[in-house]
Write a protein that binds this DNA or RNA. Structure first.
Length: 264
RNA sequence: UCCCAUCUCAU
């Protein structure tokens, strides 16, 4: 039974959802009851795949079999709905968890904040943020990054700066994600110099750029015809031991394609 | 109050 749980979870960890579900079914046929971690991981995997139907099915099944969903389970299901844009359903789950005696944690709130941010529902977002404070939960880096991303993506750069200030005042150090969010939105607004400045600030603050940073910067330069700069970063990235991924290649190819350099 | 799973960024 422990072996089955481990096998299913190992498959999920490797992204082998199909294999995991085969083992999961086999496990049940042999009358082993999957544990809550296994159920939660499966819900997560289906959620990531955008497969709400199966995520919900697993959730129902676990309840039928007497496994009691915990915060992690609800968070997984919540995120699955949030990412598909099912705001009402997600909020329903949030209320359901309260009824089930399952207290929302900061992850729960972060997921909901992210959901409203993506949807551009700022009134709801503010309401949730207040709820966090009322419940005397201390926002963490993820919370601030989520808020920053929500506001800066929607053109509210002034509000985003307020958040950043709040974050720092609260003693929460901006991390790589924070910088990535800031430089991406700054670049999209056409402030290329400022984006480059943020990139330098980040390094000076002792943060190593990651693949997301490089991809964002390369794309910013590429969109603005600064091919040299994009190429320089491309090489800098490799010498830093950071390998380009599909996102990075797309950024670089776009850069060349939009400036009549198809050969490259 | 053993161990394992959940939240935010780039094309």
């Amino acid at each position: 039974e422990m072996t089955y749980n481990s096998l299913v979870n190992a498959c999920l960890y490797q992204g082998l959802l199909d294999m995991a579900s085969v083992l999961f079914e086999e496990m049940k046929k042999e009358n082993h009851l999957p544990n809550i971690v296994t159920y939660t991981n499966l819900i997560n995997a289906y959620g990531k795949a955008g497969d709400l139907r199966n995520a919900m099915y697993i959730f129902k099944e676990m309840k039928d079999k007497g496994r009691v969903p915990n915060v992690w389970t609800y968070n997984a299901l919540l995120k699955a709905h949030a990412r598909r844009g099912f705001l009402e359903e997600a909020y329903g789950l949030y209320e359901e968890m309260e009824c089930a005696g399952c207290l929302p944690d900061l992850c729960t709130y972060n997921i909901i904040l992210d959901m409203y941010g993506r949807a551009g529902c700022f009134d709801e977002l503010e309401k949730i943020y207040q709820e966090i404070l009322i419940n005397r939960i201390t926002p963490n880096q993820v919370t601030y990054n989520t808020l920053l991303d929500a506001y800066s993506k929607n053109g509210h750069s002034g509000k985003a700066l307020d958040i950043l200030e709040k974050m720092i005042k609260a003693g929460c150090r901006p991390d790589v994600w924070t910088y990535n969010i800031l430089l991406t939105s700054t670049g999209k607004e056409g402030n290329i110099i400022e984006a480059g400045q943020l990139y330098n600030d980040m390094k000076e603050a002792g943060h190593l750029p990651n693949i997301v940073t490089y991809t964002a910067m390369i794309s910013i330069y590429g969109r603005n015809g600064l091919i040299q700069e994009a190429e320089t970063l491309w090489m800098e990235m490799q010498s830093a031991g950071c390998l380009p991924n599909l996102f990075t290649y797309c950024g670089m190819i776009d850069c060349y394609a939009h400036h009549g350099m198809c050969k490259e």
